[in-house]
Amino acid sequence: MNAAPVSPVPTEVDLQTVFEPTVIGFTCNWCSYRAADLAGTARTKYPPNVRLIRLMCSGRLDPAFVLKAFAEGADAVMITGCHPGECHYIEQNLKALRRFRLLRRTLEALGIEPQRVQLVWASAAEGVHIAAEIARVTDEVRALGPLDWPADAAADTGINLDSAWEATGGQEAELAPAEAEQAPEADR
């Protein structure tokens, strides 16, 4: 039961030479965080590349958190939440799902491979499952290599992203597509 697929654990030596991705995982307090706890209690091994952040709900996930993680050096982001129909806040995980889809599309347009943002459902009982998913995502991102965001995107594109960003009101404009989807009329 503890046999989650384990990718080879890197040793200190090859960490200096071989690429090991850093993955930020957002977890829901009620399901996936508890699944990670369960993986721990059951000593289910998974690669150490993932670092988890607890939110109360996947619905709390502001797409800006994902951008922030990439900006700070993460190679991939896992968004985890309760299975559809099992959300502790009734249906907020579905809102996370919609944000995820838009975010992924937006990131793809920015040239970021879709495998770098992954959505995983895991109930509080699925310790083995979340461990396996962490291993899978880590393997996929290891194969992709480091996030190849240009050292200076502005220089690359000829667009001054900083001023473009600020001119559009920063976060608000970046999130506009996601928000549009969440407008009340689209909600029902």
């Binding site: 890197p10 850093t22 951008l67 922030k68 050096g73 996030l147």
Partner: peptide
Amino acid sequence: DEQVMAQIEGLLRIGMNGTAPDRRRFPVAS
């Protein structure tokens, strides 16, 4: 937001090899 953003920064303070990872110039970070 501040707490989560700060936690992301902290978590990525050191990379897999124990040193600071590359920070990318990414729109949100300015």
